[in-house]
Design a binder for these strands. Sequence first.
DNA 1: GTCTATAGGCAGATAGAC
DNA 2: GTCTATCTGCCTATAGAC
Lengths: 196, 196
Amino acid sequence: MAKRSADTGSRILDAAERLVQQRGYNGFSYADVAAELKITTASLHYHFAGKAKLGRALIERYAERFTEALATIEARLPDARARLDAYVDVYGDVLRGRRLCLCGMLAAEYQTLPKPMRQSVIQFFDDNEAWLTRVLEAGRQEGSLRFSGSAVDAARMLISGLEGAMLVARPYGEVGRFRAAVAQLLTGLAATPAGH
Amino acid sequence: MAKRSADTGSRILDAAERLVQQRGYNGFSYADVAAELKITTASLHYHFAGKAKLGRALIERYAERFTEALATIEARLPDARARLDAYVDVYGDVLRGRRLCLCGMLAAEYQTLPKPMRQSVIQFFDDNEAWLTRVLEAGRQEGSLRFSGSAVDAARMLISGLEGAMLVARPYGEVGRFRAAVAQLLTGLAATPAGH
DNA sequence: GTCTATAGGCAGATAGAC
DNA sequence: GTCTATCTGCCTATAGAC
């Protein structure tokens, strides 16, 4: 009953996702995916009619899983500060696999993406922003977080900072760079000023 | 005596630079540059033996100009806070042209870049970090800037934040998003807490 | 320095057998 | 569902005339 291995469609998405996060949408080919799965590119086309459709499916699944991860964070952690820290950890985990955020990578390549993919990238950032805005607003209410300006601006700052910290840290191959940059990013948000 | 137009080498670099900042290193071709300059790709190879060498020349020139811009900022502006603001404006100007920072884009594509290009990308970030660290340290000394932790960590946070803010803002086509995110990024650094 | 012509490879994609 | 075979187009790159 237990499935020993995922079906081909999922395995294609797994391989393509890793390739895009590491090399970019314009930096991988059907041949790369096919070689990894030991099938032919013709078989690939059976599952995903074209590269654009594969790309769109990648974002959809990635966004879905991200949403699930955020729901889990909310279910398990009660206070805003802990939720924020857990959110940051999601990004750190991605970087540890020498990957960028899928949509961060696609944002860099945005101007070359097929139109349908573009809207999905925007949607990912919008969803993240909405979730983070709610957490920040709650944190301000409960007194665990503080920030000047609107919660949505603070959320945008954080998302930008996290995406950028991954982008810059990866060439150095040091997750410590990411952590240090993000720690600095968060100091301004702590209701209790960071001790020194 | 006045040169009416730049020489071919420079015009190639101009076109290629714009293409990389907008579409990425893997998202442009010799044919794109050749078409823009109305020459052939064979002529392109006379000036730059291969795409990797062109890529390296792009980074070298970009880094050189960046260094000059930073020197100009130091020459014209006396205090650290003004220098920091001017530094941020450099990024904003790039984004206004619907471009990313050249090295931010190349950082995304890092794993696919020819080896010689990689070291140049790292060098760009190292130089920026060193300059910004000096400005931040000076600002702390003169009392115009404050931050917890080391100046170098604050510098890394700022560079990450600026690169990320460009990355995320561009798909939306709104420079306002960049400005708002960066404003939030800087609030923690103002010695005089943002009044309200 | 710029051209024409072309090589050689890889890209995404399709037809049709099994 | 997966294969072989093939197509067309674009890519980087080079030889050699002008």
